[in-house]
């Protein structure tokens, strides 16, 4: 199973870098296994987010400065995003969910790329971006699915199923398939992008340890930010889609 991996690791001579894929630092809680490194990093990310929020809202002023200014910029950005995708009337209750999606993924991605986790040695596996773990991305994608179902049902009740046969009835199987592909593509897109970034940087560092990987790292930072934006945008647009169609239906009939 790990033929390639071993080939790669025994290939290099300097012990400067090492490539590890698919190794987890397991914690056993009862009968369950959890990935310790993912949870550790995500706690750090959550802690920093909470810390930033506390710092930003500790001393609220009409003319913002410092942390408040930064977080206000973030909030306005998120509001703008939600407003364009969901619509002026309905977006407000969804700002926390979409905003937290964006902030969590963004900080996770950048934490994985910017913080030198390698300095902390774990018994097995290594600390990295939590979004580079399939569990995290599937969790977020499933939550997004639940969120848009919830939005649809709360807005229209059982009439939400009317969406499935909305333009023409034979769309029904496609719409049902879409419900499965949406979280699948969401989770795999994020997971694949982050993992690919880390792997590419890892392979480059393995081959040329100094300076050469820097542009790729910069590209990785960029991609990470865009992926966070895409995840949040898509979640918002799914939610907006689930709530929106009904009005148009009424308008047409």
């Amino acid at each position: 199973m790990s033929v390639m991996l071993n080939g790669l690791t025994s290939f290099h001579f300097l012990p400067l870098a090492e490539l590890e894929v698919g190794k987890q630092f397991y914690w056993h809680i009862g009968n369950f296994n959890v990935h310790g490194q993912v949870l550790l990093t995500s706690w750090i990310v959550i802690g920093s987010l909470v810390l930033m929020s506390v710092l930003a809202t500790r001393n609220l002023q009409r003319v913002p400065a410092g942390t408040q200014n930064l977080m206000e910029y973030a909030l306005e950005f998120i509001r703008d995003l939600a407003k364009t995708q969901i619509g002026e009337k309905e977006y407000r209750p969804w700002v926390p969910f979409i905003g937290t999606l964006f902030l969590f993924i963004f900080v996770c991605n950048w934490a994985g790329a910017l913080v030198p986790w390698k300095l902390i040695r774990l018994p097995e596996g290594e600390l990295a971006a939590p979004t580079g773990d399939i569990n995290t991305t599937i969790a977020l994608a499933l939550l997004t699915s639940l969120a848009y179902f919830y939005a649809g049902f709360r807005k229209k009740g059982l009439g939400y199923f009317g969406n499935y046969v909305q333009p023409v009835p034979f769309m029904l199987p496609f719409k049902i398939i879409e419900d499965f592909t949406k979280p699948l593509s969401l989770s795999f897109r994020l997971f694949g992008n982050i993992l690919a970034d880390e792997l590419v940087v890892g392979v480059l560092v393995l081959l040329v340890p100094l300076f050469v990987p820097l542009p790729v790292m910069a590209l990785g930072l960029f991609t990470s930010a865009i992926q966070a934006l895409i995840f949040a945008t898509l979640a918002a647009s799914y939610i907006g889609e689930a709530m929106e169609d009904h009005g148009e239906e009424h308008g047409e009939h």
Partner: peptide
Amino acid sequence: GGLFDIDATLPLM
């Protein structure tokens, strides 16, 4: 381990 090891991390996350 493995890349696609789905376990209790998912609900916890």
